[in-house]
């Protein structure tokens, strides 16, 4: 079967695109590597999306998933590993290959790792990329948060209520995140801020026990921490599709507001696209635009 629209990624952008394409009567396949919902399912309460303040990210994603399925979009849970361009575009997964007239890449982004040796093996054993998900496992323990943006500052503040001590480690001498949050952190007695410092070593047995922090003079300090929360930004999941889309210097998919790419019939939507505002509402908006553009493209064939 050749689908009219194949969507890679079942987050808010991808599922919204599926809704628009199905309502236009097109056949739609959504490929998803992990599980529906995308990053929003980690959000406890959504307060900035129109109509229903306080809805949980999980409820939002589940209702969107049910809406999309009810409209007749097909979901397959396999990881898209590449696109072959042609009259029929082919999307490959470890399990098979799917053909479509148009493709919308809505793969979002993943947490950027620190790049310290042993980090990956310690995920779930002390290293975490989501304080609101895993913070409770570190009640009354010492933890470290790494980063200087809003996520890092908010994670540190969240952990200050749970953990015994929070070390906030930032490689520069000032934060990129909001000053108001930084000021709240400076007033907390159990938060210790280490500027101009990076995490250079993880010491662990089966679980994380200590981290080594090195400052810009090269002075090393060993800290006893059970948890290390990494909040140093996100990486777009575009690398598998570099042959059909253009990436900017940081790896985001270059595209205007029309979500088009350098390849006719291939579109990008949501957080993996190069843009200024990455929010739920801009992700769903991208989905609508990309689907509309895909419909126009199909009509032109």
């Amino acid at each position: 079967m050749i689908y009219d629209v194949l969507i890679i990624g079942a987050g808010p952008a991808g599922m919204t695109a599926a809704i628009y394409a199905r309502r236009a009567g097109k056949s739609v396949l959504v490929l998803e590597a992990k599980g529906y919902g995308g990053q929003i399912i980690k959000t406890p309460d959504i307060e900035n999306y129109p109509v229903e303040p306080g809805i949980s990210g999980y409820d939002f994603a589940t209702r969107l998933y049910e809406q999309t399925k009810a409209l007749g979009a097909e979901f397959v849970f396999e990881r898209a590993e590449g696109i072959v361009d042609g009259n029929v575009k082919k999307v490959k997964t470890p399990e098979g290959e799917y053909g479509a007239k148009s493709v919308i890449i809505a793969t979002g982004s993943e947490s950027r790792p620190l790049g310290v040796e042993g980090e990956t093996a310690l995920i779930g054993r002390g290293v975490s990329y989501c304080a609101t998900c895993d913070g409770n496992f570190f009640r009354n323990k010492a933890v470290a948060v790494v980063g200087g943006g809003n996520t890092a500052l908010e994670d540190a503040l969240y952990m200050a209520d749970i953990a015994e001590t929070v070390y906030l480690i930032h490689r520069r001498d000032s934060f990129r995140g909001e000053e108001a949050t930084a000021e709240l952190l400076r007033r907390r007695e159990n938060v210790k801020i280490l500027y101009n410092s990076t995490v250079t070593e993880l010491i662990a047995d089966r679980r994380l026990r200590q981290i080594v922090v090195t400052d810009k003079e090269g002075v090393k300090t060993t800290l006893d921490v059970r948890g290390l929360f990494v909040a140093v930004g996100r990486i777009p999941e575009n690398r598998a599709f570099e042959n059909v889309i253009e990436l900017d210097g940081a790896g985001w998919a270059s595209s205007g507001e029309n979500c088009r790419t350098k390849t006719p019939g291939v579109f990008v939507a949501g957080d993996n696209r190069s843009k200024d505002v990455r929010q739920l509402v801009t992700a769903t908006a991208d989905g609508a635009v990309a689907a509309t553009e895909a419909l126009k493209y199909i009509a032109s064939l």
Binding site: G35, Y36, G37, I41, K42, T43, P44, S56, G57, Y58, A61, T62, F77, C133
Partner: peptide
């Protein structure tokens, strides 16, 4: 119960 990803994983 409060873990969204856990609930998404439940069907798998």
């Amino acid at each position: 119960e409060w873990c969204g990803p856990c609930k998404v994983l439940k069907s798998t």
